[in-house]
Amino acid sequence: MSFEIDIEKRLGHAHVALTLEAGEGATVLFGPSGIGKSSVLNMVAGLLRPDRGRIAIDGEPLFGDGIDVPPERRRAGYVFQDARLFPHMRVRANLLYGAGREQDGFEDRTGFLGIGHLLDRWPRTLSGGEAQRVAIGRALLSRPRFLLLDEPLSSLDRARREEVLVAIEHVRDVLKLPILMVTHDPVEAERIGTRVVRM
């Protein structure tokens, strides 16, 4: 499994450009806030269109050469900075939103994330750490080919960070899903990253 990314995008006065080839494990995009790290993830997910370039996963092009696969067919498991749980659905419905008819692995996923007891709760009643773990579970249950993590710890306090870090390590080491993660925190970058790309 590999990422091939070679993209350019002008956003207002800023110019975002990145060339990257990465194999298994977690690739961390590291750098200060506001230099377009999240925009890179949005372009890989198909939510933002690069001005030019190419994005491919495992040799299969998602963007470039006239191809632009819509986000719903890219199978990116995207965990946003703010969990973005759907406020009008309970945790269970949020988790199953992308799962389709097959619900394999539901017990496993909710188990290692420690969210089994939250299934009947509304998102607004969850703590930040709980919401972020549900967001990770929701992304994993959509049967993604890879995971995109956008500052998944930045809205959490120290104690909650550890819970989510352990969950991310589990995804990297046990589920062996390739991860592309954005952070401005050197400690997180060091701990999660199989390789770190400075932007």
């Binding site: 986000p71 719903e72 890219r74 990116a76 959509s142």
Partner: peptide
């Protein structure tokens, strides 16, 4: 709109 984007990445057309 960010919720709608999240839904798109989860496979919803």
């Amino acid at each position: 709109r960010r919720l709608e984007n999240a839904a798109r990445t989860l496979g919803a057309g």
